[in-house]
Design a binder for these strands. Sequence first.
RNA 1: GGUCCUGUGGUGCAGUUUGGAGUGCACGCCGGCCUGUCAAGCCGGAGGUCGCGGGUUCAAAUCCCGUCAGGACCGCCA
Length: 574
Amino acid sequence: MTLRTDYCGRLGVDDVDRRVTVCGWVASRREHSEHLAFVDLRDHTGVVQCVVDHAHDLRSEYVLRITGSVRRRPEGTVNPNIPTGEIELHDCDVEVLSTAEPPPFPVTDRTDADETIRLKYRYVDLRRPRMQRNLRLRAKVNSAIRRSFEDQGFVEVETPLLMVSTPEGSRDFVVPSRLKQGSFYALPQSPQLFKQLLMVGGTDRYYQIARLARDEDLRADRQLEFTQLDAEASFVDQDDVLEFVSESVAAATEAVTGERPALPMATMTWEDAAERFGSDKPDTRFGMELVELTPVFAGTEARAFQAPCIKGILVEGEGDIGRNRLDTLTDLAKQFGAKGLAWFRVRDAELEGQLTKFLSDDEQTKLREAVGARPGDLILAVADERRLVRTVLGRLRLELGRPPVYEGGLNYIWVVDFPLFEGVDDAGRPIPAHHPFTMPHPDDLEKMESDPLSVRSQAYDLVVNGWELGSGSVRIHRADIQQRVFSLLGIDPEEAQARFGFLLDAFRYGAPPHAGFAFGIDRLVAILAGEDNIREVIAFPKTQSGADPLTGAPAPIDQKQLDELGLRVLPPKS
RNA sequence: GGUCCUGUGGUGCAGUUUGGAGUGCACGCCGGCCUGUCAAGCCGGAGGUCGCGGGUUCAAAUCCCGUCAGGACCGCCA
């Protein structure tokens, strides 16, 4: 026996003449006189209007239980703006279950209060329809993902929350051990090593909706703790992984939007993404692609263009851009590492810009043709090392043309054939682009030692609207290849044993070929919910400085707790 | 670690450029009136450490320095 018979927002004309009981919060009170008042009662399904004859003591956000009779509203008083606008509850018995202080901010979707206050009073904020919608949308996504993986034969396995700290990757959140003072657990940045162990353990197909933590600085799309769909499968290749992940993402999308994305999802090589979009997470919702200009200026007199690589982008209709804006863009380009930014305002017969006097007529004509410029357009170009040119222009492209992340549909795209290494460190050693267990591309194995930077890997990212949703790879399961990668990275056998010994040991006992993936559920849900910030789809998120205004975390702990852990806190640096 | 933006009754904002009385708008709150509203309406009222500290000045919400908090971004996030 529950306190209610119905939910507010679900009542309609079909319920006319029923005597119903609803529970909820006072969304608004419109008091006409001592003997006529309207109370809108809100629960997570919506609001329903209750005609109450004495409402003076029913204030905003009071928690009420109202029993009343459903009737059609009198002629001329129907409210077409709300789903329950055709009916109302009359002849109401009102029970005050709980009184309430006036809320710190309006509990509506119409205005947004300051986020600190919203987070401090998150329990009030969550009453807003938008937040309830986001929570429920997220639950739908989780459930669709689970169903999809279950249907594809994956088994859910939980992995430890307290694990050993490994030096790779992001900074670990660390938990002191009381039983072994001076030793620490780490919260998982990823279940990576455990899921590979599960493959060695014969699990065949594993998935998990995993909570993870990384002690790095926050962003609109990054929290200290976050949620990922994590999956791994044995005896599969890259295409299999793309297929089962695509299937689950499609199922989640369909559960929310009602529309199933076309499968298979588009793929693009990393090289293509870098060349055309200057990014490994290309936003393909708009054009403004990077145009190769190196041949155009092969023999140029212009010093600024005497560089290994020149690329440009066409900004349509911005030929009248002001000097201020150009200076801002130039500053941005420099911030991204460029030496400068070349710009050309496209006029009818000529180009206007700081470099035109150094360019031949032929070069100017070819430049216009190469980018497809028309009078009134703007051309931006960067000359430098290829890698730098790509990223600088890629970022300028986003700065100039990128719509909000949730606009223009869902552009899922797989980026494949990532390089195995993304440059070299100070000691000249290659830096792994993914992680050191990533399988090189079979066609490139020959080049591993001779030209490591050109070796592709069997690593792949899923990107949507310029957001990296997730990444994965085929893993190395052969000791000889693993050994070659380690030695390229300068990790000798002893060190490898010290760092990943338990995984390498496991592989000695029969490792199946395996591959996997993980994608961020916070990001997926945010985009599906039309939010550009993942905090809006997390019930209790943290601020950019990692604080929770509601609970006060992080906070100092008692001396007694420190003593038990054998810890001493240093005085703050001055 | 860095760059930029923001901080003004409970909420959202204007006022800061060009210093001159806490000056204004909307919502909310309290009281009153009001029998068909729906962000009800009308009348009245209360409510302020202009984030905090210091400086300049006859005078600071406004200018300067520092600091705290929030946000966007760079670095960082294999």
